[in-house]
Design a protein around this nucleic acid. Structure first.
Lengths: 246, 246
DNA sequence: CGTGGGATTGACACGACTCAACCCCGGTGG
DNA sequence: CCACCGGGGTTGAGTCGTGTCAATCCCACG
């Protein structure tokens, strides 16, 4: 955990102006906007590519920008005083990251893969919000969704066994991919065992043991590094729900 | 868990029209409104008294109303398929309960004490939102706060020891009371050990043991049922942060 | 006086953590 | 070409913190 290991901060690799993808139906923020409004947003927004492990922003940074993840995966983490970290969520293509009404961000956002993101400065966003009130409604909508999924995560971490947590996590990956229109049986899983453990309130060894157990039961395969194929989602779902042996 | 034990549903005991307290500086929702707007809200809203254990709404109910807790305490819970419950939060006087952009509520809201609440139907709220855009901003603000505190709770449940969780919980009670202007050394604590356990992801026995341990160390007293006096918040804070014996 | 809900306490079991060894693989440099 | 290295992952042995189960207490209430 030396300063040298710390993920380096966001550094625009190129000042690419405009951001078409950002306003597309794929992206979260601008979905309700019409063409004219989209043009306006695109003119303000900056798109940029960032490498894996780059840090988009840190807990405590002034919350001066909002980001849309166009491509790639990110993890959101909070740090405990004793150095342990809790992953509060993962974000995928299309998700909005870093919107808050607070002065500062309340978590770190770090990329797990090479990614493209779209950046909008707060003053510009605020102007847009004033101009298009439906945008504010959209943000509220996204916030409610995040709140609901965080509460679900609280249930998972608070009340389920290690295996049930891992099963629920794998199924949530399927669900996340379905939401963004993914297809096929094989999932991308760019997070390490440690990331998953920090998300589920477990240790990386326990996560590893659970995955191994699932594989031995024939519930999943790992055709390659950071790839999973779920062979029996039914069994995983029953385990996640705790309806296995009651 | 027989149907007979189920908390009975909300039943307006009297159709008291108007709701001054609902728009006061104390209440959460209407804080940014001016006098004229307040009158308008008050005309629409219904205030009512409800007994302890009453259920304001249930997970899955159509989300047709928004509530402000004027006086009393409530717990918000989610149910697991296996019957265990997770308390996702407690709410106190001044807090808004049940606002969501979804079709249905995503948790149960149940009163821990006799309470007064203020009720507003969604169509009326939506009309108000259209009329006073700042209200929508206020809701977003509240939602972000909830999200942040739920993430904090995730950290607590995911990464801290039983004693650290209970300590953090007690301190959060102090903080919640401070926010609503409470004073004095003795806290109201209307939740049972089981409620606290379901909030912290522990069993009620473990919570009981932690409280007993704190009492034996002289960190708190319980002058009466559902009352706590914290005698050494410093020690509790150090324990909650995990900075005790590192 | 009996009843029931909440709380406490104890004995014991077990699931997850800890610590440690080891494997696998890709990258790097001699 | 191969040795070395480091990061990620797996596996094992042993410990310990919580959960589980059960007995008991306390007190408000009918």
């Amino acid at each position: 955990m030396s300063p040298f290991d710390a993920p380096r901060r966001l550094q625009p690799d190129a000042g690419t102006q405009g951001c078409e993808t950002c306003g597309s139906r794929v992206a979260g923020l601008c979905r309700p906007l019409d063409a004219a409004a989209l043009d306006e947003v695109s003119a303000e927004a900056q798109q940029m590519a960032l490498p894996a492990r780059a840090c988009v922003f840190r807990e405590g940074d002034p919350a001066g920008r909002v980001f849309t993840l166009i491509e790639g995966t990110a993890k959101l983490t909070r740090l405990l005083p004793d150095g342990k970290q809790q992953v509060v969520g993962f974000r995928f293509a299309g998700d909005v990251i870093g919107y808050t009404t607070r002065e500062t961000y309340s978590f770190d956002a770090e990329l797990l893969t090479d990614a493209r993101i779209c950046r909008l400065d707060r003053p510009q966003l605020d102007a847009l919000l004033r101009r298009y009130p439906m945008l504010e409604h959209r943000l509220l909508d996204l916030c409610v969704q995040e709140l609901t999924s965080t509460q679900e995560q609280l249930v998972t971490v608070g009340r389920r066994s290690a295996e049930a947590r891992v099963a629920a996590f794998l199924l949530s990956l399927v669900e996340a991919r379905r939401r963004r229109g993914g297809t096929g049986r094989v999932l991308e899983m760019p997070m390490t065992r440690a990331d998953i453990a920090d998300f589920l309130g477990l240790t990386l060894e326990t996560v590893s043991r659970c995955v191994t157990a699932f594989r031995k039961r024939g519930w999943l395969r790992e055709p390659a590094h950071q790839r999973v194929e779920l062979l029996d989602t039914g069994a995983l779902a029953r385990l996640a729900e705790g309806t296995e042996e009651d």
